[in-house]
Structures are given as C-alpha cells and as structure tokens.
Nucleic acid binder design. Structure first.
Lengths: 205, 205, 205, 205
DNA sequence: CATGAATGAGAATTCATTCAT
DNA sequence: TATGAATGAATTCTCATTCAT
C-alpha cells in the first residue's frame, strides 16, 4: 500500500468518524458515549482517540462543520440580489442547519476555533447592514440583536425540533416581521459586543 | 464559620439547599453533582437526601417554585385593566422568572405536576385571547405560538441570563412588536396542541 | 417524678426498644435500619443509641434474649421424666425458637456474651448424655453433632420458616430418627470442639 | 507484580474475576463490595462491569456454575449401577459442590435461569424414586424432603465449610441413615411442591 | 496502525452514628 | 433526657481515556 493510499485511508477513516459523531450527537446529544460513536463508525474507540485526542476535540470538529455550513449560508445571503431576501434567507438557512444538527447546538459557540467564528461574525454583520442599507430591516437593530435572535431560534428548535420539524419556521416568520415591518421604538439597549463575546466564551451547554 | 456553626434550623436549611441547588444548576446545569450543591449549602449530602429523597425531587422542588410564580404572573396579567398591558406584562414577568430560575428551565414542563401546569395553560390562553379580543394582539396567533415564544425566550435567557441580565428584554421587546403591531400574513401553521404536549412530555433537557 | 419512677421509665423504654428491634429483625433481618426500629419503638434514634451504643450492641441484646429462651428449653429438657423425650423436646423447642426469631439467627453464636453460651453448651451436653445413658440416643454421637444438627435446622428454617412454618418439623422428625433409632456405623469423625468454637467465633452471618 | 503486569488475556481475566468473586463471597457474603472483588482479582472495578453488567449478573454467573455442577452430579447419580449408591453419591456430591461454592448458596434458587433448574428438579426426582423403587430409600419420603435436606445441608456447610471442611459429611452420613435404614412413621407432612416453589422464588438470602 | 479490554475517578444514594436543640 | 436533623464514608455503576496485543 502506497503512502498516498494510506493517507487516503486515514482521511476516509477520519470522515467516517466525524459522520458517526455528527449523527450520534444529533440523535443522542453530546452525552453520547464514545463507544457508541466508535461502533457507528465501525472502528474501535482507540482509533477515534488517534484522530481526536479528546472527546472535546471530536465535538469541536463536528461543530466546525456546522459552523462552515453557517458561513456558507451567510455567503450566499450576501450574494442574493435582494438584500432583504438575503437576510431572510439567512435566518431560515440557519434554522435549517440548527435543526439538522440539533445535538451540537450547546457547543456551537463555546470553543476557540476563532478564525471561522470571526468570519461568521464579519459576514453576519455584512448581511444585516446590507439589508438595513436597503431599507429591508429596521435601522435600530444591531448585529448583537441578530446573535440574540439566533439564541432564541435555538431555544425553539431544541424544544420542538425532533417532534415538530417546522414549528421554528412559524416562530421565525413571526419574529422576522418585527425586524422587517415594524418601527416602534425599542427602549432597551442591545447587549454589547463584549457581553456577547463573554457569553459565547462560557457557553458549554 | 466552622462546620459545626453551620448547623441550623431545619426549615432554614431546606431553603438554603434550594437556593444552593438553584444557583448551582444555573452555573453548572442539572448535571451538577449533589456534593457540590451540598458544599454550597454548607451541609452534607445526607442532609439534602433527608429533605429530597432523590435528585429528581430536588429538581422538581425548584421547578415547582417557578411554576407557581408563572401562574401568579398570569393571574395578575388577567387582572390588568388593559388587556394589552396585561399580555405584555406577562411576557416580561415570565422572562424575569425564567432568569431567576434559569437552572431549572430544562425540567419546567417535563414532569407530571399536572394540576399546576393545566392551570397555567388555561390562564395563558385567557390572557392571550383577552388581549386579542381587545385588539391589542393580532388575531392570527394562537396559544401554541405563545408557548413557542416562551421557548425562544428560554433560549435567550439560557445564553445571556448570567452575563447580561437584560439582553432578553431587548429580544422580547422586539418580538412583542410582531405580536402587537404587525399584521403581515403568516404562511406556516402553528404547532398543534398535541405536538406541544408531546414536546413537553419528552422535555428532559 | 421520683428517681425510682425514672428508672422504671428507662427500663420500660429499654424493653420497648428491644421488642421493636426483635420484631423488626425477625421480619426484615439484621439489615433493618435503626430508624425503622426507632419508629416502631416510638422513640428517636438517639434514644436507642443512649441504651445501646452500637447497632451491634442492640443485636447482641436481642440475641441474648433468644439465647436465654434456648437455655430455658434445655433446662426443661433436663427436667423431663424421660430422657429421650427431653432430648426430642429440646430439638423441637429450639426449632420453635429459631423460627420465632428467624432474623437473629445469623448472630446467634458469633458474639462474646460468654457466660450464657457456656451454660448452654453445658446444659446441651447434659441433655444429650442423659439421653444416651438412658439408651434413647445412639452412643456414637457427641455434643458437636448436636451443634451441627442445630446448624442444619437453621438452614431449613431460614429457607422455609416464613412460607411453610412446619416444614422444619418434618425435617427434624426425619433427622431425629437417625439419632434415636439407627445404629449404622459412622465413618466420619465429628468436628472437634475447638473447631466448633472457631466456627462460632467467626459466625457473623 | 506491577499493576501493568496484571493485564492479561480477557478470558483468563474473566475466570480470575469469577474466582475472586466466589472466594470473596465465601468470606464476606454477597454484600462484599465490588471494589474488594476487583482488588482480589487484580483488576479495576470497570473491568468487572465490562464482563458482568451488574453485580447481580456476576452473582448469577457464579451461581450458574454451581447449578450445572449439580445437574452433572445428578446425571451421574442416575448412571450409577446401584440406585442406593447413586442416591447417596448425589447427597455427598451436592455437599461437595455446596462447599466449593459456599458463597453463592443464598442465590442458588432465587433467579429465573429456569431451564437448568427444571432439569435439576426432574433429575432429582428420578434419582430419589429410583432409589425408592430399589428399596434403598424409605418409601414415605418425597422429593420435597430431599429439597429440605439440601437446605439443611446448606445450613451446616455455611457454618462449618471454611473452618471444618468435613463436618458436613458427618452430618450427612447421620442424616442419610434416617433415609436409608429407618422406617419409623413420620407424623408431619412434607412441604407441598408449591410451597417449595414459593420459597425458592423469594430466596434472595 | 487498529483494536477493544482495562482503568479509576466520579455520580447518586444509603445508613450507622453524632450532636444541637 | 429525648429527639431527629446532620454527617460522611461506603456502595453500585458509568464513561472518558490509556495501552497491551
């Protein structure tokens, strides 16, 4: 077997493990045992630990995939012809992703993996501001409000996701109307970006 | 304060335990060990088990406090002169309660403490319908949407509650505008009441 | 309340505890909790610990009562007109006592309480030898065989005592025939008295 | 021998655990802690739980060995040329087995491992009836008496087994004479087979 | 390299014993 | 003196992680 073939095997193995971990976490949550994941991947636990020194590392890798899905969604939101449509599409795309990877939500923002998260924040801001510049979204909301909206989305999906796969759509539709069709003044200030950073840093659940 | 000096009146001790449990659950989640709670309460584990035969019982007791607070909030919402004000007050009262008892939100609906929960549902419906009859809340939303709104509220508070104690107010203000000042049509149907019941029944997290 | 009255109270209390302990052990075995015994006696656990510094001490006291019942049985066996009848009566009396105090059997011989046990051994030897001298019991058995017979009796009663209160009688009837009506030689030697002492010393179950 | 050196082949390990369990149960009873058994076996607790998901399972496995030994003894008792010799051999074989597995006698009959137990009952009846037909055993005893005899045997062995490994032989020799050489009438009826079944069903000690 | 057996710290719970009231 | 609340060591069992094969 050539070195190249070995490398290919290894890569394949790695992705089998990631797939197994993702689907296991999706179904059983992050408390799922490593043994279960190993079985689903058709490997021994030891093999997992060769690729991912720690369960946390494994989780982080799965989360990374979810995060890049989100980034992709933001990119295409930015590509949309209509800024408002793009914004709205982003909301629903993220909902879709959340529902698909329900089990990973607890760690979605907790870890370091900074580059990707920075990109996500950057893109998210763009999407929002573009929609605001186009007049599609009220001007008195800020990016931190969007982060908060995603927290609320998570709340809905974590409850209803497995039983009622579309309940979050209704909630999002309703909520998005406040962003796009309302102008009543808001008395409370949004959380500061440093607060948001702090929250994310603690977020282990 | 010596370990000996911590021995107190039983009733006081009980509430010390409940307080310790609440704050521990807030910070570490419901997986927090009984030992930790005992230390925080300044008692031995055995003392906890004297009052609460099971960890579940301890959780249930914390939860019970929350539920009766919620019921009280709904009662006073019904008593409000203005139906719209009552509705709005309910939203913010529940937010307040959720933030105070953040740690036990995961079990808020799962258990069988039925009478109280039924009363809550009944009152909640009343509050909503009264506000709708008064024209303060759009007529195309149903009680299940309110339940969903509370799920979303929980999502926000579980993230931000400890760090940014008012972030949820902002989110709620925004969201409530969609309920009170918007009329754009909604394409998705709300979850059915049986779906909601099913979701609650499974709700162990 | 006079000192005498106090002493009477205390004595009464002590016997209430002993009664409660005896009946609890009879029904639930020696693993029964101290709290249960206290409740049955209508006192607090603390009161038990005032009279009996240790659970072991309490058990020993209950056992002491059983042992004196056995001693009494042996005394009346010695008083019997017919030596063979006396011997037989002893067997069945002990069976009766064992069944009545089924829960205490595990500690019947383990503890120190020497005087009573010595008396029991002494009397037991007498009963046996008297019956042998009278020709009612075969001459090739020794007191250690009698001790062994009581072990076997315990085995039967511990199994069947609660369900089939007379099963042990049948077993004893059968076994006694070997002692009284058989003469076939025995090839194995009986356990030595020092072995028996050693066995009793270890007997904590 | 270092802790590392103790790691062995899995199969060997399993029997080391079973051996350790047996001898620990013999000495400390079934209440012995898993930690103790693990130490004696030279493994960690986790290793025990890998092979035996539950302490009950561990006990059941030890018990199973005993039961199949008993069945084997009965088979060879049936194969004996002389029916009386076969019967007698069975008694002593069972004694031998009981002594060897002294620690698990409390659970010998309680569980549901039914097939084996039914076979044992069936064979036991055969052995007895064959000996009765051959005139070697008195005709007024039934299989339930044999069960009772084994209870009594257990009583003797549980007391004396570790200290005086042959004491039970003497007791059995004596007792067997009542079965084989006596004819005096028996006044008490044997326990019914349903009583015996009930006793076994409860037998957790 | 892969495997899965072994490890052992940690979790919930029980109960004999102590001690403030 | 009596009470029963408080204590905490011990028990069964789980699971992330290590390492012999």
């Amino acid at each position: 077997m050539s070195a190249r073939a070995l490398r290919r095997d290894a890569a394949e193995n790695r992705s089998r493990i990631l797939d197994a971990a993702r689907s296991t976490f999706d179904q059983e949550g992050l408390d799922a045992g490593m043994e279960v994941i190993a079985q689903r991947a058709g490997v021994g636990v030891g093999t997992i630990y060769r690729r991912f020194p720690t369960k946390e590392d494994l989780i982080a890798s799965v989360v990374h995939e979810v995060l890049s899905d989100i980034r992709d969604a933001q990119r295409s939101a930015l590509d949309a012809n209509d800024a408002g449509d793009g914004f709205l599409a982003l909301l629903f795309d993220v909902g879709e992703i959340y529902r698909l990877h329900l089990g990973c939500l607890p760690r979605l923002w907790g870890d370091a993996d900074d580059e990707l998260r920075e990109e996500i924040d950057h893109l998210g801001r763009e999407v929002l501001e573009r929609a605001q510049r186009a007049g599609a979204v009220r001007s008195d909301v800020v990016y931190e409000d969007l982060v908060t909206l995603f927290w609320s989305l998570r709340g809905v999906i974590e409850r209803s996701g497995t039983v009622s796969p579309d309940a979050w759509r209704r909630a999002l539709e309703l909520q998005s109307q406040a962003w796009m069709f309302c102008n009543a003044p808001l008395r409370t200030a949004p959380p500061s970006s440093s607060e948001v950073a702090l929250i994310r840093g603690q977020s282990q659940n």
